[in-house]
Design a protein around this nucleic acid. Structure first.
Lengths: 142, 142
DNA sequence: CCCTGAATTGACAAGCGTTCTCAATTGTCC
DNA sequence: GGACAATTGAGAACGCTTGTCAATTCAGGG
């Protein structure tokens, strides 16, 4: 029970959250099919319409994984609902038309530096921030 | 039934949302008793501790009124819960401890300018923005 | 190719914050 | 004081999100 025993020091044969399943692929495809922010429930409905049956809980879990991995942006609509969108991997913010929802990704190195500086100045650590800009886009303004 | 009838052209004797009741006064007093953001439920609890019994639904309604009137700031904590705070009238942002809720009001003229510039650049008008910084304050970080 | 075990899923229940309902109460104005 | 709208409170209802847990699926070794 010693010499023949295989190496068991690696406790986990696979790391959770990495298995490519039908459901995860389907969620990824749906995310690629639109450019604006959608709620988990909307995404779940879209999956149904595509004929890809995926449980609602799985949709939530997958979106959480993708968000943790930085592959989707999550933000809260005004009524507190979480909405998701696939995103470029860099940190950025959004300029959103409050009328039609058209979204522009914007980067703001100056803002990043500013928030860090402010946080340092007050002794806050482990910083995150949310910045969204709302306005009316050219098309909607007429 | 015609000549003796009083003038009925004024449909509304009073405008809703303006009556100073015990409950609304109590909520106002509690709001004045702290400086950081609190959830509606916390405020409801604080009212109870003060001996001022106010229904939870009334707390929500009152906070909504105050928010509409611009007398309190509302923002969403990272998990989507609405949190409230009486506010100074100037535009500002918040550095909030995600552990204890300690809040610092910060102004960022640079950020204001930056958001305006970005919006102009993309043809968006009638701009507003939300910017909140979350972190762990010195006390909570240990 | 089959076996084993962990990862993953789905249906459902549960949790939580928020809003709605409606009868009872309160404040305002005549 | 009286009438009537505004307001309240208790609880139900609601919508989003997360937890539960047995059943299923995937990866890798034998």
């Amino acid at each position: 029970m010693t010499s023949t025993e295989p190496d068991r020091t690696t406790v986990a044969p696979g790391v959770p959250g990495t298995r490519p399943t039908r459901q995860r692929r389907a969620v990824g495809e749906v995310l690629a099919s639109f450019d604006d922010f959608r709620s988990a429930q909307e995404i779940h409905t879209l999956l149904g319409q595509r004929g890809e049956s995926v449980g609602l809980a799985t949709v939530y879990r997958t979106l959480q994984l993708l968000a943790d991995a930085g592959e989707v942006d999550v933000l809260r609509s005004e009524d507190g609902e979480a909405i998701y969108r696939r995103c470029s991997s860099t940190h950025h913010h959004h300029l959103v038309c409050r009328s039609c929802g058209a979204t522009v990704e914007v980067e703001g190195p100056a803002v990043e530096r500013w928030t860090s500086a402010i946080a340092d100045e007050h002794g806050y650590v482990d910083i995150s921030h949310t910045l969204e800009i709302f306005g009316t886009c050219r098309a909607c303004a007429g």
